[in-house]
């Protein structure tokens, strides 16, 4: 049965308390590598949000209208990935056309959204938690925005950290991981207020 949860609560929970990155730790590779640069972080955040929202809804429809009725539930992983790959492919062409500069800065990470764990992860949450179509849309949009918020904040923090006197051995990934740890604590700190299951 679909869980009873107010749309607004679900939306805020997916952005803050159950942030896909900082509470569930999904989609870390591009999170760490792209957050070097604030502009590309924003671009990738937008791209992930768009892909996540579209694939969340499309995969819900595929699951409920094709896979369940035909008894092909066991094929869900392969079908989800195919849908995600196609959406990314289309998005790639659109970005190349609209903003070649963004296309250049995102580089390899744009096609790699296909295998971004956050996206498949959100889709699988939708499936496990038995969300309705509306809930799926809100949840995937919220998760995308949460991912965007996390990467944009990390990029902003890293901009400051770049100028800070960090001990040599911690420069680069070291201090970034520590930063992420603190961010995660802050986000998880809210989890008592709202919980989504």
């Amino acid at each position: 049965m679909s869980p009873q949860i107010a749309p607004l609560s679900l939306f805020f929970a997916s952005i803050f308390t159950s942030n896909i990155l900082l509470a569930n730790f999904l989609g870390m590779c591009s999170f760490i590598s792209i957050s070097k640069d604030y502009t590309s972080s924003n671009g990738l955040g937008l791209a992930v949000t768009v892909v996540l929202t579209i694939t969340g809804v499309v995969n819900w429809a595929v699951l409920h209208y094709i896979l369940y009725p035909l008894g092909l539930y066991y094929l869900r992983f392969i079908v989800f990935i195919i849908v995600i790959a196609a959406v990314v492919q289309i998005l790639e062409m659109v970005i190349d056309r609209l903003s070649p500069a963004l296309y250049m800065t995102l580089g390899i990470f744009l096609p790699l959204i296909t295998v971004n764990c956050a996206i498949l992860g959100a889709v699988l949450f939708i499936e496990i938690r038995n969300y309705t179509l509306g809930q799926s849309a809100i949840f995937s949009l919220g998760s995308g925005l949460g991912w965007w918020l996390a990467i944009a904040s990390l990029a902003a923090i890293r901009k400051k950290v770049d100028k800070a006197p960090v001990p040599a051995g911690l420069k680069g990934p070291g201090i970034t991981l520590i930063t992420i740890g603190f961010m995660a604590m802050a986000f998880i700190g809210f989890s008592g207020m709202l919980q989504v299951q």
């Binding site: 094709i66 094929l75 079908v79 195919i82 196609a86 289309i90 062409m93």
Partner: peptide, 20 residues
Amino acid sequence: LASSAVGAITAILALLISVT
């Protein structure tokens, strides 16, 4: 059934990609 379902989904998506 399984192969034709996956095939059909893929075909629709491929069509979408080539139209875009």
